[in-house]
Write a protein that binds this DNA or RNA. Structure first.
Length: 243
DNA sequence: TATAATGTTTGAAC
DNA sequence: AGTTCAAACATTAT
């Protein structure tokens, strides 16, 4: 369900729990959830699509995959995978993956790869892309080690914005287009964040799920492309194929 | 109502 | 042995 910007919204909604102790845990997860009991939440972070609840000596990682969802201070009419109750409210996660991380997060995550992070480093992304010249751009955008947080919606919208065909090879992109790819991955993600906050994200989609190109007024092509085999919506006329 | 979709890991098969 | 690919997980809008 969520791409990176949605996790940022969740992080904002849950900052109220930083400093609080977990007073009750429940849910159908098989992990040792009781270890969180009476533990203080020392920080709440995110990396790409990973939502991270930090305790003193370990971290809870929540990944929502395709169908996961959450509720803050309310419940859904479904059994939670994990529910945490604090003195000032509750946090409920549904049909998602939950795991514990024992290591220091700074050794697990490269924060500079997260397009939503203050530490995002476009130069690093460029270096990483240079390492995979044969990769298709539709796959490159979905590579979390390079563009953590980018999902299929962002992929389709970014490629449409920069007028690049999804089947273009990374190594064939002119410098200008390569720079636009990197810059728009972050820039569109922040537009996504703003629109999502206002509950008007879909209204702003120009390519994703669309059937007509708003620039050319001709039908989009829709196909499952790349190693990721995710659906792509693109215009054969105004999105240039570099190969 | 069947289908497909904002995703990733795992392990079998080649 | 490295790569590829299907399966698994599981919800909901169309």
């Amino acid at each position: 369900m969520p791409e990176g910007p949605t996790i940022v919204i969740l992080k904002d909604e849950t900052l109220q729990f930083v400093g609080k102790k977990v007073l009750r845990v429940s849910g159908n997860t098989k992990i040792e959830k009781e270890r969180m009991l009476n533990q203080q939440i020392v920080a709440i972070k995110s990396w790409g699509k990973h939502f991270l609840v930090c305790f003193k000596t370990f971290t809870l990682k929540v990944h929502f995959m395709l169908f996961g969802s959450y509720r803050v201070n309310e419940k859904k009419d479904a059994p939670p995978r994990l529910s945490l109750e604090m003195s000032n409210g509750e946090l409920n996660f549904y049909s998602c993956s939950v795991k514990f991380i024992e290591e220091d997060l700074d050794t697990v995550y490269d924060w500079s790869a997260d397009v939503m992070s203050d530490m995002w480093d476009p130069k690093k992304a460029k270096q990483a892309l240079k390492q995979v010249p044969d990769m298709l751009v539709c796959d490159a955008l979905l590579t979390q080690s390079i563009f953590a947080g980018v999902g299929n919606i962002i992929k389709n919208e970014v490629l449409f914005r920069i007028r690049v065909h999804p089947l273009s090879r990374v190594g064939a992109l002119p410098v200008k287009q390569l720079n636009m790819l990197i810059n728009e991955a972050r820039n569109y993600s922040f537009d996504f964040l703003e629109w999502k906050r206002k509950y008007e994200l879909k209204k702003h989609w120009l390519a994703h799920t669309k059937s007509i190109c708003p620039r050319c007024n001709i039908p989009f092509t829709r196909k499952h492309l790349g190693k990721t085999n995710r659906r792509s919506f693109f215009c054969n006329n105004c999105q240039v194929l570099y190969e």
